[in-house]
Each structure stands twice: as structure tokens, then as C-alpha cells.
Amino acid sequence: MSRLGIFVDRKTLSSAEQLNALIRCRDAAEEMGHGAEFIFPVDIRKIPQVDGLFIRARTDPMNITYVASRMAAFAGIPVIDDPDSIQVCSDKVHMYARLMREGVEVPRTLFLSFRDLTPARAREVFDELGSPLVVKEPSTSFSLRVEKVEAPGELLQVARRYFKLSDWVVVQEYVESTYDWRVGVLRGRFLYACKYIIPSQTFKIQDSVNGHVVYCGVESVPPQMVPPAVIDLGIRAGRAIGNGLYGVDIKEGPAGPCVIEVNDNPSLEGGEDTAYPHVYREIVHTLLEV
């Protein structure tokens, strides 16, 4: 019997859906004959005592999840998400640079430094990428700090706001779609797939519309109903990042599927795995039995 540590913070525990997902994870570990325990930020010194660590809190290199992940790595303990994956996926500049280097299809993308962004450069960006464009602050998650702009002045305005948080921003061509594919990849292999149905009032999977938060719909899709090109692209994107657990968001654009982003610590509490009942068993197996 091995011991699985599930790293959580108070925010993880504040959501009923997350709690249910955590209990399913713990149950999966126990059904497989392993022990499972929750580890909180103040318990970080317990990490060397577990045999595998599964992080279920918002990851970022600047928060406690990176500490937990790095401590596990220092102790030679398998961890999802590993520190490298957190580093790459938490920073969209890093993530797109990696995907581009590995030849993974992404929308046309530019990185703009606060030093370079002048009105003339903003016009050039529109000439290069067309209109509209999507501007992203590199640490964005859940579609926060992602905006669509249609003119150079708007680009300057949004980018200047984001430059308060990052010296570089990401600018991408806009790919229109009514849904995103989410392909789950574990250790370079297909794990699950679902569709995120984008609310009609926005282009993001989560947005604030007239003061109300609107969320995407989640539709778990069996493997035989997922286009092979989408699965293939998801796997290639996951492998480009590393050997962990990833949720790859893919849009089917006019020129074929392209990766919108690769998420470490992908959500599993929204019904993403309904058609894949063994997702947690696979994760536990990877952490404790491989």
C-alpha cells in the first residue's frame, strides 16, 4: 500500500464540486488499495512522507502550490503538477514559446514587450495578424485578463493595463468558435475529452456579462466521437510541455485545429470525465504504481 497526498488549499475546499471531485479521487486511491490524505499549505513538511503528490489548487510559480511541487521534486516524489509543468503552463509566453518551438499548431502569436509597444508597432501587429486580435496577460486563467481588441488604440489601452502585471503580453489572431475541445493528456497519452460550450454572450469560457458571471457548458465526449486530429494535436501539445497531466484546449479553425492553451492542473470537477470513469484511477496509478 502506498500513500497519496492530495494538496489542497482553502479555495479548493470552498467549492462543493471540487469537494466531490476530491472525494472521488480519494475513493479511487482507496479502491486501489492505497491510502490518501489531504495536505494543506501548513503541512508542507509532510510531503516527503507520501509516495505521490496530486496538487488540486490553482497553480502558479509564485504561490504555495509551486512550493509543494518543488518540495516533492526535491524529495524525489512523483508529483502532478510537477514544477516544470507549473512553470511552463502558468505563463502563456513560456507555454506558446514551447509549443511553437515543438511545431504544435497555435494561432499566429506575437509577444510584445512594454518597451516595444508604440502606436506604430500596434498598427504593425494588426497588419501582421489581422483583426480582431486577442490580448492575454501571461498569467491569465479561467479567461481572466483575456480581451478581444479591434483597433490599435484598443490594443495599446489593454496592453498598458496588463503591463502592470507583466513586462510582456501575448497577442494572437482571433479564432472564432462556439466551443473548445478539452483533451486530457496524462504522461503523453490520451486520457479524456470534452467540449466547453462557449456562452453566446462572450468569446470566453467564463466571463462577466452585465455584472453576472457566465460559465461555459461542459459536455464529456466519448473517444470515438472526438475527431482523431483533435486527439492527435492534444497529445502532441501535452508532450511538448512535459510528462504530466494536462488539459489541452483546442479550437477547430478554418485552417484546421489549433491549440488555444495547455493547462496544468486541469479542472475535473465540472463533468469533464463523465464518459471516462477511470480518470482518477489512471492518475493514482501514474503517481503510485509506475
Partner: peptide, 10 residues
């Protein structure tokens, strides 16, 4: 889908 482009100015 065309690949992206890196702006590299080390």
C-alpha cells in the same frame, strides 16, 4: 494554421 512567431531580442 500558421505557426506563431517569436520576437527575440536578447
Amino acid at each position: 494554421m500558421p505557426d506563431g512567431q517569436l520576437l527575440l531580442e536578447p
